[in-house]
Design a binder for these strands. Sequence first.
DNA 1: GAAGCCGAACCTGTATGACAGGTTTGCCGA
DNA 2: TCGGCAAACCTGTCATACAGGTTCGGCTTC
Lengths: 236, 236
Amino acid sequence: MWSDPVDQGVGLVSSTIGAITRLIREQDLMPGDRLPSEATLARDLQVSRTVVREAFRSLAAMRIIELASGRRAAVAPIDHGAMSLIIEHGVHTDQISIQQIYDVRRTIESRIVTLAALRRNEGEAQAIRAEAAAMRAAIDDPPALMRHDLAFHMGLARASRNPVFALIMGAFQGITAQTWPVGWRSRTSAAAREAMIANHENIAAAVAEGDPERAAAAMSQHFDDSVRALISAGLT
Amino acid sequence: MWSDPVDQGVGLVSSTIGAITRLIREQDLMPGDRLPSEATLARDLQVSRTVVREAFRSLAAMRIIELASGRRAAVAPIDHGAMSLIIEHGVHTDQISIQQIYDVRRTIESRIVTLAALRRNEGEAQAIRAEAAAMRAAIDDPPALMRHDLAFHMGLARASRNPVFALIMGAFQGITAQTWPVGWRSRTSAAAREAMIANHENIAAAVAEGDPERAAAAMSQHFDDSVRALISAGLT
DNA sequence: GAAGCCGAACCTGTATGACAGGTTTGCCGA
DNA sequence: TCGGCAAACCTGTCATACAGGTTCGGCTTC
């Protein structure tokens, strides 16, 4: 029999987390379905409400359940929020470098853009192009530009039709948002900034036209530029 | 100014989580460094110890800090435990399919094995080969075989010298452990089982010899086999 | 008979106090 | 100087209390 990996920490809270996840699985609860109340669980599992609450908090931190005041806890849809925090923690504690993040992103986004070119529907193609256009429009408004840049890449990830790719890309969003300004500031010339926008437009066009090779090539170009920009800014 | 993504849930606990992560960053705490006691934080942040405890639990769930009875909380080294649970949750709630996991794994492990062939040191090459050998030795002991299979892939990820790859691979470990027996059972013939072991040995040899192309080709072969095995077992 | 309003029951968020058991630290004795 | 011991500190868990949000059924009104 499997022992839930959470049970390793042999505390009551850990066992309770295991019991709750088991409950979700055995009852085949789907996102949106509600869990028993804290008091009910406490009674059933023979622990105090404190323990159940801490278990709930732990699961909520991983976005496995959703908590809201007054309402019962509910099973949550997958969300990259927790993974984003984990990655940020790794970077801030010097366990992960920005370069390493970019190497992984290049690997994943190469595949994403290929899949997106093959699988995207009309609406997704439109949305991706719209973000690229919005980037050009916001060329003098860095915060807005960054938002559209992030949305552009998330749109690609969604168009790949594989939620795991979207999840991983989302996990990088937090740290990317923190390093993006560095890369932008290092693009001092108007030409460099123009090129950065053009890269995105090229990717969007290739995806919209359903040309995976060109899309992958354009994405590769984009990463060459971005990594060069970050290196020239002194980011290791 | 940035508002921590955690602060969205406007509760006291969420703000406290934000305050603690800010503390970690501003004081440049590294893995192993200890945090203030619950009582101290409660006093400093003007909240009850209950709130601090729930915040600690949340951070511990994401493996950002480590809790232990009697000892002060400490900053944790990055760990894939939380991400593993998140992925498992996605699969169990039908938000992610096994096929999608394998598509991501193929993408990532192709790159991992290439990097590993280029960067592995002698010890890592040795360890990877040892796991492959152990797989052959455990061909009649599925649980042990699976353990060595997982360790083999994690060894490759480590040899890529990029902790983010290792982190992502680790995130798939939990769900892989749950589906592995399905793939194994679907390999009914001795030849199919032999081929599966041989694939791993080929990968290990190519990595040890520093031949990235052959390593990537062998890994691709491995995934072709594995996906075929899972499909024939009826896993969507 | 149907639609809308209202209050009671239920539930979560937070605080307080208590105590058992594990950990750390510094002092004291050998 | 070294080893051990005890006190201080800290976390894990429990019980209780109460404010404020949510739900749901019944009652009123049209």
